[in-house]
């Protein structure tokens, strides 16, 4: 699949945004960490900014962004519709939740309810995003049980890196917290690793033989494509990354997404002040970089059934 930058930006930014606001909501509800209201409020705004950037960028690849509102209509069958609806529903809750940090007039009960709703809707939205991909039977590398966990886990992980900064600003980024964050990272990337392992061992049922129904005549290969020039299908669905590159990129994603931020988190746990903040900022950059590479690969490694007609395999 074509790794379109708008979609990569959308999923990684909004994922991080939902992850971040989920951490904040969780904190509010659980009281695990004590955040300065100002820091928390600003962090919420950052989360909303990320979410909004993501959502806006997702409209960049639309042919008719001005009609984007229509995308909300088909919640009964379409995960894209659902995602849109949940994304929109998240806003009021998240806005109230955000406002609560700034304006103490908002009663705690409402604030808590808003936090609960934000937490729930964020996760559901991310699940919906994952489901858009996971529900496509045409792309076996997406159509599996690992995709949604990956989306959720990486949203939590990248949100967690952002959240760590808020914690640091509030002076709550202590060693156990940093270890916890590292563990979250580890678990998320373990899920991703499991996904990779899964797709590498997958043997999809569809082949050029089943696509054409000519398998009974033997091995089927394409002699001539319909057109000598590339078409939409091949540009959109035919993008393929060489295995060699993919392996390299996976390693890079792990290094950026897990290894480097992991080390930085440990270091941050034993430092404080600006140093800690700097370490965490660095961890965040690496971490998000890792997610972007992961997201790029998620598309680039995915093979679409239509390519079977062009003599390729899934």
């Amino acid at each position: 699949m074509d790794p379109a930058y708008s979609v990569i930006l959308f999923t990684s930014a909004s994922g991080a945004g939902y992850g971040l606001i989920a951490w904040l909501a969780f904190t509010r509800l659980s009281g695990f960490w004590q955040l300065s209201p100002l820091a928390a409020g600003i962090t919420c705004l950052v989360a909303l900014a990320l979410i909004t950037t993501g959502l806006l960028s997702s409209t960049f690849h639309l042919g008719h962004p001005e009609r984007a509102w229509r995308a909300m209509s088909q919640w009964r069958s379409s995960w894209l519709s659902r995602e849109g609806i949940f994304a929109i529903l998240t806003y009021p809750a998240a806005l109230i939740f955000t406002a609560g940090w700034f304006w103490s007039i908002i009663p705690a009960s409402i604030m808590n309810a808003a936090a609960a709703a934000t937490l729930l809707l964020s996760v559901i939205t991310v699940i919906s995003t994952g489901m858009i991909y996971a529900s496509l039977t045409t792309i076996p590398r997406w159509n599996n049980a690992w995709v949604v966990p990956v989306y959720v886990a990486l949203a939590i992980a990248s949100g967690g890196l952002l959240f760590s900064i808020a914690l640091a600003v509030s002076g709550a980024a202590n060693q156990p917290t940093m270890v916890l964050m590292m563990a979250v990272l580890l678990v998320s990337w373990a899920v991703k690793w499991a996904y990779w392992r899964y797709i590498d061992r997958q043997s999809p049922a569809s082949t050029t033989a089943t696509a054409t129904g000519l398998g009974h005549l033997g091995q089927v290969s394409q002699l001539e494509a319909p057109h000598t020039s590339e078409n939409y299908l091949l540009k959109e669905m035919g993008f393929e990354v060489a295995r060699k590159h993919a392996t390299k990129l996976r390693r890079m994603a792990l290094n950026f997404g897990l290894l480097l931020p992991g080390i930085l988190l440990v270091l941050a746990g034993v430092s404080n002040g600006l140093v800690q903040l700097a370490l965490l900022a660095l961890a965040l950059c690496f971490g998000l970089g890792g997610v972007v590479i992961e997201r790029w690969l998620f598309f680039a490694e995915a093979r679409h059934a239509v390519t079977l007609f062009y003599g390729r395999s899934l």
Binding site: M1, H61, L62, G63, H64, L136, Y232, E236, H304
Partner: peptide
């Protein structure tokens, strides 16, 4: 149609 292309992804 908003041109989201999802249907083309869904068509094998």
């Amino acid at each position: 149609c908003i041109g989201c292309k999802l249907c083309s992804w869904a068509c094998p």
